[in-house]
Amino acid sequence: MSTPDSARVLLSVENLRTWFHTRDGVARAVDGVSFDVRAGETLCVVGESGSGKSVTALSLLRLIDPPGRIEPGSRIAFEGRDLMTATEEEVRRLRGNRIAMVFQEPMSALNPVFTVGDQVAEVARIHDGASRRAAWDRAVEMLSLVGIPDPAARARQYPHEMSGGMRQRVLIAMALVMNPALLIADEPTTALDVTIQAQILELLTSVQERFGTAIILITHDLGVVAEAADRVLVMYGGQVVERAAVRDLFASPQHPYTQGLLRAMPRVGQGRDRLLTIPGTVPPPTAWPSGCRFRDRCPLAFDRCEREAPELTNVVASHAARCHVAGTPLPAAAASS
């Protein structure tokens, strides 16, 4: 990847393709995704549901079950190690250790029959071989680190005794036990209210400042992206359609899909004018349109878009878009407002 930044590349993904071979056909959920994550940065992955964000995240940890498969030719390198050729055991040792993950639904990610303290301690015991006592102390320390008041007492509670925000903090605590180099957070605030979302985003930022953890933050909320990201991947149809530094993305979105998303959001102060919309819906992953996958919803589509699939190309340095017309001056009507 052409990055002027010399920061250390932690994770490098090239041509990742994860397909689900279902009865209804091959669902090409992730289809040729490439990106880098640098140490200590926050990379946001944004897109509507069905665009392949979660499957990308799960693929990074090789957590894809049949009928899903990471297709041959995909390359995932973490800290210089090739994860595609690594043994299952090697990948297992990375999970929860060097790479940790936080999910959207905090309740289903926690085991209801163990106390949260036990579950956090468990991670230390697995990866560190810590003694029961030491692991428990570490759990309490982690719970306090993620801002759970009275952590010693809270550690003895069960997941159902906690609110959604608290549970998400517990999951973050579990993810941080081993001080991972990379934290993957899949919609960690989607199930939460705005005020709790603000708490969790604040927590992630402070964790990053303190430990230098790199974060892949998956979201569908461009507001969250603007608040949290250093760099952004916009996904559509199992592909990256735009990749840019956060400022560049919002200052001059290049892909018609990104522009559409920004226009479709209601804004305070805009009054009650009609919103601009993207017509139609995301097609199913078994039937992406030929050529450009966005073409049946794109206001700028022309004949070439049907014939030829656009490549992800740099419009300006380190700002790439997958569109035949990106970089050329746009008609006024389509320009971002």
Partner: peptide
């Protein structure tokens, strides 16, 4: 783009 306070909390359908 400078004046756009907006957020969308669309929730994807979950198992429930």
């Amino acid at each position: 783009m400078a004046e756009t306070p907006a957020s969308t909390l669309a929730i994807e359908p979950t198992a429930t």
